Amino acid sequence: MLDGNGRVARLITHAMLKKGIAGVEMWSVSRGFARDRDRYRYLLQCCDQPRRGDRDGRGQLSESSLVDFTRYFLETALDQVNFMSGILRTDDFSRSLLEWIRSQPDIARGDRIIEQILIYGSIERSHVPGLLGTSERTARRVVQSLTDHYLLTSDSHRAPLRLNLPLHAAQAVFPSMVPGNAM
């Protein structure tokens, strides 16, 4: 729009969604609006129309147009969530990642660490030897191997371990999203 209200509305909405909903970084309602710009612009312009009679809200602008735009907005947001879920195969993510790790000889022993991180979000380094059923030294080697392959990250050498998904792993886990020539 010439006045910039559409851009401002998208920025504010994205910021509000990001604050209130986990995972918003993975999808954008603006992508959905871009797929049908004419409808988006039409519905947004209708929100600036004057009220149509006594049954169209109490303010000066049309409440029914705002309801139509809000419905379109929510349908578009849901469409984008479903689109990204299909591409990311969120239901298969854990299984696919663990299968890929187990197929890699250098890091296969780290599958239990990754599995725990997928379940709990992170793992304390002190828990790794017990989880793997190995000595502390062997556990450090396994962690180092996963770190060398960029699958683990940590804020410091004492901080909990978290998952990092490098491009070479993303290609294996999300083949429809990351093209093979991306590296």
Rank of each mutant, 00 (worst) to 15 (best):
Asp3Gln: 11
Arg7Phe: 07
Val8Asp: 11
Ala9Trp: 10
Ala9His: 09
Leu11Arg: 14
Leu11His: 11
Thr13Gln: 04
Thr13Cys: 04
Met16Gln: 06
Leu17Phe: 02
Ala22Glu: 07
Gly23Arg: 01
Glu25Gln: 13
Glu25Asn: 12
Met26His: 14
Met26Lys: 14
Trp27His: 04
Val29Asp: 01
Val29Lys: 00
Ser30Pro: 01
Ser30Asn: 13
Ser30Met: 09
Ser30Val: 13
Ser30Ile: 04
Arg31Gln: 08
Phe33Gln: 02
Asp36His: 13
Asp38Lys: 12
Tyr42Gly: 14
Cys46Ile: 13
Cys46Gly: 15
Asp48Tyr: 08
Pro50Tyr: 12
Arg51Pro: 00
Arg52Gln: 05
Arg55Pro: 00
Gly57Asp: 00
Gly59Val: 09
Glu63Trp: 13
Glu63His: 08
Ser64Thr: 14
Ser65Lys: 00
Leu66Ile: 14
Val67Glu: 11
Phe73Thr: 12
Glu75Ser: 10
Glu75Cys: 07
Thr76Ser: 02
Asp79Ala: 03
Gln80Pro: 00
Gln80Met: 06
Gln80Cys: 08
Met84Asn: 07
Met84Gly: 07
Ser85Lys: 01
Ser85Thr: 13
Gly86Cys: 04
Arg89Phe: 06
Arg89Asp: 10
Asp91Gln: 09
Asp91Arg: 14
Asp92Arg: 15
Asp92Val: 07
Ser94Trp: 01
Ser94Cys: 06
Arg95Asp: 06
Ser96Pro: 03
Pro105Met: 02
Ile107Val: 01
Ile107Glu: 01
Ala108Gly: 03
Ala108Val: 06
Arg109Asp: 14
Arg109His: 09
Gly110Lys: 02
Gly110Arg: 00
Ile113Cys: 07
Ile113Asn: 04
Ile114Phe: 01
Glu115Trp: 06
Gln116Phe: 06
Tyr120Phe: 14
Gly121Phe: 02
Ser122Gly: 12
Ser122Glu: 15
Ser126Trp: 10
Ser126Asp: 15
His127Lys: 15
Pro129Tyr: 02
Gly130His: 08
Leu131Thr: 07
Leu132Cys: 08
Thr134Glu: 03
Thr134Pro: 00
Glu136Asn: 12
Val142Asn: 09
Val143Cys: 10
Val143Pro: 02
Ser145Phe: 02
His149Lys: 08
Leu152Trp: 00
Thr153Ile: 07
Thr153Ser: 04
Ser154Thr: 13
Ser156Trp: 02
His157Leu: 15
His157Phe: 15
Arg158Gly: 13
Arg158Asp: 11
Ala159Tyr: 03
Ala159Val: 04
Leu161Gly: 05
Leu163Met: 03
Asn164Tyr: 05
Leu167Tyr: 03
His168Ser: 04
Ala169Arg: 05
Ala170Leu: 05
Ala172Cys: 05
Ala172Glu: 08
Pro175Gly: 09
Pro175Trp: 00
Pro179Ser: 09
Asn181Arg: 10
Met183Pro: 02
Met183Arg: 11
